[in-house]
Amino acid sequence: MIQVTPTFTISDDEFTERMVKASGPGGQHVNKSSNAVELRFDVGASTLPDDAKERLRRLAGSRLSGDDVLILFSQGSRSLEMNRQEARSRLADLVRQALHRPKSRRPTKPTYSSKLKRLEGKTRRSGVKSMRSKPGKED
Score class of each variant (00 low, 15 high):
residue 1 M to N: 11
residue 3 Q to K: 13
residue 3 Q to R: 12
residue 4 V to L: 05
residue 5 T to Q: 08
residue 5 T to Y: 06
residue 7 T to M: 03
residue 7 T to W: 03
residue 8 F to E: 09
residue 9 T to A: 15
residue 9 T to W: 07
residue 9 T to P: 02
residue 11 S to T: 13
residue 11 S to H: 06
residue 11 S to Q: 09
residue 12 D to K: 03
residue 12 D to S: 15
residue 13 D to G: 04
residue 14 E to C: 12
residue 14 E to F: 08
residue 14 E to K: 08
residue 17 E to R: 02
residue 18 R to V: 00
residue 19 M to G: 04
residue 19 M to Y: 15
residue 19 M to R: 08
residue 20 V to G: 01
residue 23 S to I: 01
residue 23 S to C: 07
residue 23 S to P: 04
residue 24 G to V: 05
residue 24 G to H: 07
residue 25 P to W: 01
residue 28 Q to W: 05
residue 31 N to V: 09
residue 31 N to Y: 10
residue 32 K to E: 05
residue 32 K to M: 02
residue 34 S to G: 05
residue 34 S to A: 11
residue 35 N to Y: 13
residue 37 V to H: 06
residue 38 E to D: 10
residue 39 L to V: 05
residue 40 R to S: 13
residue 43 V to L: 09
residue 44 G to N: 06
residue 46 S to G: 01
residue 46 S to W: 02
residue 48 L to I: 07
residue 49 P to T: 06
residue 51 D to C: 04
residue 51 D to I: 04
residue 52 A to G: 06
residue 52 A to D: 04
residue 55 R to Y: 05
residue 56 L to M: 03
residue 57 R to H: 06
residue 57 R to W: 07
residue 57 R to K: 14
residue 57 R to E: 06
residue 59 L to H: 14
residue 59 L to D: 04
residue 60 A to M: 10
residue 61 G to N: 12
residue 63 R to V: 01
residue 64 L to H: 01
residue 65 S to H: 02
residue 67 D to K: 09
residue 68 D to G: 03
residue 69 V to A: 10
residue 70 L to E: 08
residue 71 I to T: 08
residue 71 I to F: 04
residue 72 L to M: 01
residue 73 F to H: 03
residue 73 F to W: 00
residue 75 Q to S: 15
residue 75 Q to N: 10
residue 77 S to V: 03
residue 77 S to N: 08
residue 77 S to C: 01
residue 79 S to Q: 02
residue 81 E to L: 03
residue 82 M to V: 15
residue 82 M to K: 15
residue 87 A to L: 00
residue 88 R to W: 05
residue 89 S to L: 09
residue 91 L to Y: 12
residue 93 D to E: 15
residue 95 V to A: 07
residue 95 V to T: 10
residue 96 R to Q: 15
residue 96 R to C: 11
residue 97 Q to Y: 08
residue 97 Q to D: 10
residue 97 Q to H: 11
residue 97 Q to S: 14
residue 98 A to H: 10
residue 100 H to T: 12
residue 101 R to L: 11
residue 101 R to P: 03
residue 102 P to L: 11
residue 102 P to I: 07
residue 102 P to K: 14
residue 104 S to H: 10
residue 104 S to G: 01
residue 106 R to Y: 07
residue 107 P to T: 15
residue 108 T to I: 14
residue 109 K to C: 04
residue 109 K to S: 09
residue 113 S to D: 13
residue 113 S to V: 14
residue 114 S to A: 15
residue 117 K to R: 13
residue 117 K to D: 15
residue 118 R to L: 12
residue 121 G to K: 14
residue 121 G to V: 07
residue 121 G to Q: 15
residue 125 R to Y: 11
residue 127 G to H: 09
residue 129 K to A: 12
residue 132 R to Y: 06
residue 133 S to P: 00
residue 136 G to T: 14
residue 137 K to C: 06
